[in-house]
């Protein structure tokens, strides 16, 4: 069994084109090298001017034409079913954000990696919160760009249990190569059980949960190392030089400053960091949530 319902169509057009190509590549190369020796200056001291041959020109126009039309056709028939998802597909929102994938199930469950039941069509609504990404599952032979406000989707039926890589195929900035997760295919019964088990977050600080859910940690570390944004470690209470409208100012990092940074991330930029990479969370995280985030930041010294 193939890993997904699209493997057959994609692989068929791949192997057909590569097979025909290989025959031509080898054939032409062999003829070329043969001529090179057979008609070398030594073996054939006097050349013959042959200006053209209409029959040959027709033959080597018509044959490639027929072949490429056939190649085109199988490409199209392998691709067409990808365009429309079955009505009864399970709909999951797949959200791409610099540099993290997250998945939102119909009942509201949100996860970092994708889990789907076997042999049932699944439709992913592709949502970008910032720049273009592209959701790519090589084992399933599918890929679709995740473009903000474009309403793209992709669908598939997984046919083999297991865990496969999900990659980002559209360059999206510094940590593009690390925008990875997995898809796990399981039986319906296991999937139902999985849907009901919420990870136990009662021992985890609610602020940390918010950071994890919103891809904050893909740019800000908790161990002091530098990524795209300043690290969270010990950040509360420090004084920083920030650039506001091109002017450098000294500020103290306090509750108000952090909350303002979540709402208007590009208004004040810590010196040495880039503008424009962080989105505004004003509409995404509640006022209460923002306070929980600050509470959490106070705990990492």
């Amino acid at each position: 069994m193939n890993a997904s319902n699209f493997v057959e169509g994609v692989d068929f057009s791949l192997y057909m084109i590569m097979g025909i190509s290989l025959v031509f590549l080898i054939g032409i190369t062999v003829v070329m090298v043969y001529f090179l020796f057979r008609y070398s200056k030594k073996n054939n001291p006097v050349a013959t001017n042959i200006s053209h041959n209409n029959t040959l020109e027709v033959v080597w126009t018509v044959i490639p034409t027929l072949l490429v039309i056939m190649m085109f056709w199988y490409g199209w028939t392998g691709y067409k079913p990808m365009l429309t998802a079955p009505e009864d597909a399970i709909e999951i929102n797949a959200i791409g954000q610099m540099w993290k994938w997250s998945f939102e199930y119909p009942d509201g469950k949100i996860t970092d990696s994708l889990v789907v039941p076997i042999d049932e069509p699944v439709k992913l609504n592709l949502i970008s919160k910032d720049v273009n990404h592209s959701l790519y599952i090589p084992a399933f032979r599918i890929k679709q760009d995740v473009v903000r406000d474009a309403g793209n989707m992709m669908w598939f039926t997984a046919q083999k249990k297991g865990t496969y890589d999900i990659l980002c195929a559209e360059y999206c900035g510094q940590l593009h190569a690390y925008m990875l997760t997995t898809i796990t295919v399981m039986d319906r019964s296991d999937f139902d059980k999985w849907l009901l088990t919420e990870p136990d977050l009662s021992n985890q600080h609610p602020g940390l949960t918010i950071l994890q859910r919103n891809a904050c940690l893909s740019c800000h570390t908790r161990d002091g190392s530098r990524l795209v944004g300043p690290s969270f470690k010990g950040v509360m209470g420090t004084s920083e030089t920030v650039v506001i409208n091109g002017e450098e100012t000294e500020i103290t990092v306090d509750r108000a400053y952090i909350i303002e940074s979540m709402k208007n991330p590009n208004a004040a930029i810590v010196k040495g960091y880039q503008q424009g990479l962080m989105i505004s969370y004003e509409q995404i995280i509640s006022a209460e949530g923002m306070n929980q985030v600050v509470d959490y930041l106070e705990t990492i010294k």
Binding site: F6, G9, V10, F12, S13, L14, I17, M71, F72, Y74, G75, W76, T77, G78, Y79, M82, S134, Y136, P138, R141, I142, K143, A169, E170
Partner: peptide, 12 residues
């Protein structure tokens, strides 16, 4: 240039 094959190898 083949639609189906390109879906797999595009941007790789």
């Amino acid at each position: 240039g083949s639609l189906a094959a390109d879906v797999h190898v595009h941007d790789t």
